[in-house]
Amino acid sequence: KELVLALYDYQEKSPREVTMKKGDILTLLNSTNKDWWKVEVNGRQGFVPAAYVKKL
């Protein structure tokens, strides 16, 4: 599985998104969309802005 690092805090704005804190390590589930990547964090799956994370 591929991991990404949260570069910034992000507060979810819809049920399809997830909240993350700067420094969190997230599991990358899908990065086919250039703007929104699907990740898993704390057992929850959802989208975060691709610009807010970096592949490890």
Rank of each mutant, 00 (worst) to 15 (best):
K1N: 11
K1D: 09
E2K: 10
L3G: 03
L3K: 11
V4P: 00
L5Y: 15
L5V: 15
A6P: 01
A6T: 03
A6I: 02
A6G: 03
A6V: 11
Y8H: 12
D9K: 03
D9N: 10
D9I: 02
Y10N: 01
Y10C: 02
Y10R: 03
Q11C: 10
Q11K: 13
Q11E: 14
K13E: 08
K13H: 10
K13C: 11
P15I: 11
R16L: 14
E17Y: 06
E17S: 07
E17K: 05
V18W: 06
V18C: 09
T19Y: 04
T19S: 15
T19I: 03
M20E: 00
M20L: 10
M20Y: 02
K21L: 09
K22P: 03
G23E: 02
D24Q: 15
I25C: 06
I25T: 07
I25Q: 05
L26Q: 01
T27A: 11
T27I: 15
T27C: 09
L28Q: 01
L29I: 14
N30F: 08
S31G: 12
S31F: 08
S31Y: 09
T32F: 10
T32V: 11
T32A: 13
T32H: 13
N33G: 10
N33T: 07
N33P: 05
N33H: 12
K34Y: 09
K34S: 13
K34P: 15
K34N: 12
K34L: 10
D35K: 14
D35F: 15
D35M: 15
D35L: 15
W36F: 07
W36C: 06
W36K: 02
W37T: 03
K38E: 15
K38I: 15
K38N: 07
V39Y: 00
E40G: 06
E40A: 09
E40S: 09
V41E: 04
V41C: 10
N42Q: 11
N42K: 10
N42C: 10
G43W: 05
G43C: 08
G43F: 06
G43P: 04
R44L: 08
R44G: 04
R44I: 08
R44N: 07
Q45I: 15
G46F: 07
F47C: 10
V48C: 05
V48F: 00
P49C: 03
A50L: 02
A50F: 02
A51R: 14
A51F: 09
Y52H: 07
Y52P: 00
Y52N: 05
Y52G: 06
V53W: 01
V53Y: 01
K54P: 01
K54V: 15
K55R: 14
K55L: 15
L56M: 11
